[in-house]
């Protein structure tokens, strides 16, 4: 779960995103809507603690992010937040299985290969565990990115435009996978997208206005 209260993120004089209030509970699946440039990615980064708001309060899994020192926030993020970035970026220098092990290591979580293998089986890429990311198709890389995001059983799972480059069938499968993994981890799922196909698949929606207002 998370709660955003009166948050505002500015870049100089420009407001990148402003949210009066948004609360989401564990197990809920949310669509974060709005056109390009409305601040969807910025809002995801604020929830993940990757950037701090100019003002307002962000509480994620009962943790007020402003109370955490930078190094604590990094470890907290590794354990609490799963992120599927827009570019599905996997670390190209290491194998699929090592990408997941790295996620455990960086979060300070004990290595759990049984969990990793189980996840790779669940997303149907177990046979690719020792391949390098460069050898995977777009769909396979996306499934690995989802597995990596949930490997530490996060409280919040954030996905940034996960269906942007997919056809209808693959978009539906990706959404189904995200929901299933979030449910299995007991996480709150937030999918930032302007893809109209996603809207009917997620029960909750939070839509940002077309352009953040200027001061």
């Amino acid at each position: 779960m998370f709660a955003l209260t009166a948050i505002e993120k500015r870049h100089g004089d420009a407001i990148a995103v402003a949210v009066a209030s948004w609360r989401a509970q564990s197990g809920e699946a949310w669509l974060l809507g709005g056109p390009s440039g409305s601040g969807k990615s910025t809002l995801l980064h604020l929830i993940a603690g990757l950037t701090a708001p100019t003002s307002g309060s962000i509480v994620v899994a009962n943790q007020d992010l402003s109370a955490l020192a930078p190094a604590e926030r990094d470890r907290w993020r590794g354990r609490t937040v799963g992120l599927v970035p827009q570019r599905l970026h996997l670390i190209g220098a290491v194998s699929v299985i090592d990408n997941l092990r790295l996620a455990q290591r960086l979060a300070g979580v004990d290595r759990d290969d049984a969990r990793i293998v189980g996840l790779l089986e669940a997303v149907q890429v177990a046979d690719l565990a020792h391949r390098l990311p460069g050898e995977l198709s777009q769909g396979q890389a996306q499934r690995v990115a989802i597995a990596r995001a949930v490997v530490n059983r996060p409280a919040v799972l954030l996905a940034d435009e996960p269906t942007a480059a997919l056809d209808d069938e693959h978009a539906a499968r990706a959404l189904e996978l995200l929901r299933a993994q979030a449910l299995e981890a007991g996480a709150t799922l937030v999918v930032a997208t302007h893809d109209a196909r996603v809207k009917p698949l997620l029960p909750h929606a939070f839509v940002l206005p077309p352009h953040a207002p200027k001061t």
């Binding site: 930078p70 470890r75 993020r77 590794g78 970026h89 670390i91 790295l102 960086l106 979060a107 300070g108």
Partner: peptide, 16 residues
């Protein structure tokens, strides 16, 4: 650069 950003997103501290 993107690798490093992902590592930070996964929980890496600056010193890592």
């Amino acid at each position: 650069r993107y690798d490093l950003a992902i590592l930070r997103a996964l929980g890496a501290r600056r010193r890592d």
